[in-house]
């Protein structure tokens, strides 16, 4: 740093607001969260300590492990479901639609709902799946059901459907982006060599689009993993997820140390997933680009 003083001052002026902000509002809060996770709860407050009791409780109390596994399971189903719907859709847009205007319209059709409130998009499934909801009324009117059924709402399936609906744009966007970048000449070359269309898809298109699938998977997975709205709206008694448990530790249960430990466990899981997917994407790029 041999730059003249005036340049250094200017640099400091550009740098200091963002640096200060991230230090005060991100670094310090995460640090306090970390410290709190070792404290002990002494009702009605909590005391400084250094012990691993909170982590031990999470590891040994089957209640927490069950919620954690359930959250992982639901996040996995939501990501898988989104990918199964999003992939054909993105594929259709890139390879089957010829008119760019129509393609843009179909792309916007998926992305546009992101502008509509998350809450309302989740809520509308409550109207659809509820006992007096549209699905029940419809099934009764065509004679499949003789009386309204309560099996559609307040369970994990309802939650998975709702979350797929809410997060699917995050799956379509990255898959579309990678499919669009695949040179058409590669696919033509494959068909010139006499490879069938299905095999071309399996051997050329699909491997090249893996980075997009991984990116979409990561987004939908982490978004679902941290969600605590859908479980309350459409999830049943067996639908609570890890974020609900954390929220209750900071609310009614008033056990901030345990809540902090749970939040750190969540943080670690999410960071692990992001790191793995990062590696994966880079691997893909190195291989094919």
């Amino acid at each position: 740093m041999s730059a003249p003083l005036s340049v250094r001052l200017k640099r400091a002026a550009v740098l200091s607001p963002p640096l200060l902000w991230t230090f005060v509002f991100m670094f310090i809060p995460y640090a306090i969260l970390f410290v709190y996770s070792f404290w002990v709860q002494k009702y009605p407050t909590f005391q400084p300590a250094f012990q691993f009791g909170n982590y031990l409780q999470i590891a040994t109390d089957p209640q927490y492990l069950r919620v954690l596994l359930r959250t992982l399971k639901i996040a996995l189903f939501v990501s898988l479901g989104s990918a199964l719907i999003a992939y054909p859709y993105a594929y259709f847009l890139v390879f089957k639609v010829r008119r760019p205007g129509f393609r843009l319209a179909l792309y916007m059709a998926v992305v546009a709902p992101l502008w509509v409130s998350y809450l309302l998009r989740a809520y509308t499934w409550k109207i659809i799946l509820g006992t007096t909801g549209i699905l029940n009324s419809f099934l009764m009117s065509i004679g499949v059901l003789s009386e309204p059924s309560s099996v559609f709402l307040y369970n994990q399936t309802a939650m998975i459907i709702t979350l797929i609906y809410v997060f699917i744009p995050f799956m379509v966007m990255p898959i579309y982006a990678v499919l669009e970048k695949i040179p058409k000449s590669l696919i033509e070359a494959s068909s010139d060599l006499g490879v069938g269309r299905f095999r071309t898809f399996l051997m050329v298109t699909l491997p090249l689009s893996i980075p997009g699938i991984v990116a979409g998977f990561t987004m939908t997975f982490t978004l679902t993993f941290g969600d605590f709205i859908a479980p309350i709206l459409v999830g049943g008694p067996d639908g609570l997820m890890i974020a609900n448990v954390i929220a209750s530790q900071f609310g009614a249960a008033l056990n901030w140390p345990l809540g902090s430990a749970l939040a750190l466990v969540m943080l670690m899981i999410v960071l692990t997933i992001i790191t793995i997917s990062d590696r994966f994407e880079r691997l893909g790029q190195g291989k094919f680009a």
């Binding site: 991230t22 991100m26 809060p29 969260l33 982490t222 809540g259 999410v270």
Partner: peptide, 24 residues
Amino acid sequence: LFRKLILLPIALPGIITGISMLIL
């Protein structure tokens, strides 16, 4: 570290940002 920290909330569940700031 600055880059990692500033980009973190885009990947982190909102609840973590929420509770860490509540604590602060």
